[in-house]
């Protein structure tokens, strides 16, 4: 892969990778870190990646795996910490205090199960069709539809609750 080719891919896909990482991790700094990591890996494995006819789905898949690794690690760190209660209070409270709508919706989506979170992001933010979601997640189209429907319904209910509470 030429340097130029790499930067073309970086420029066209960096935002998607970053948004996806951010959706899974709900942490901007960590998502930036993952984005950097993903493209470093692309540069290192450039030849094997070129064999994929779809670099985008390869990158989105790698992003998912890397993020889930980090989430796992994070859980271990949390479990090992004595201040689990304090930490979780710190994470949740400032987000609830943010009366900004985006913050609230992000929190609602963040609380969804992993699969639903990934699918609703890929579909409703990135407008992926079911085949593309399948390529990126390995989840079969019927399960995608079920998970997507559950995610959307939960977000709707929670959002209405939050809005009523706010009024």
């Amino acid at each position: 892969m030429e340097q130029k080719e790499f930067y073309t891919i970086f420029t066209s896909l960096k935002d998607k990778v970053f948004r996806y990482a951010r959706a899974i991790l709900s942490d901007v700094e960590e998502a930036e870190d993952v984005t950097q990591d993903i493209f470093e890996r692309l540069l290192l494995n450039k030849n094997s990646v070129l064999e994929f006819n779809n670099v985008e789905s390869y990158l989105i898949r790698s992003t998912k795996n890397l993020c889930l690794d980090r989430v796992k690690h994070r859980n271990v760190v949390l479990k090992n910490s004595e201040n689990i209660k304090n930490l979780s209070n710190h994470v949740v409270e400032p987000e609830l205090e943010q009366k900004e709508m985006a913050g609230m919706i992000r929190t609602i989506i963040d609380r969804l199960p992993k699969k639903q979170k990934m699918i609703i992001h890929l579909r409703d933010v990135e407008s992926y069709n079911f085949d593309e979601i399948f390529d990126a997640t390995g989840i079969d189209p019927n399960a995608i539809r079920v998970n997507l429907s559950r995610a959307r319904k939960t977000v709707k209910e929670e959002l209405i609750k939050t809005m009523n509470y706010g009024l």
Binding site: F18, R19, E32, L44
Partner: peptide, 16 residues
């Protein structure tokens, strides 16, 4: 709005 979020950092050859 989510779709307009961009990754604004430059790529650094840190790890290589």
């Amino acid at each position: 709005d989510e779709k307009t979020i961009e990754y604004t950092k430059e790529f650094e050859h840190k790890k290589p």
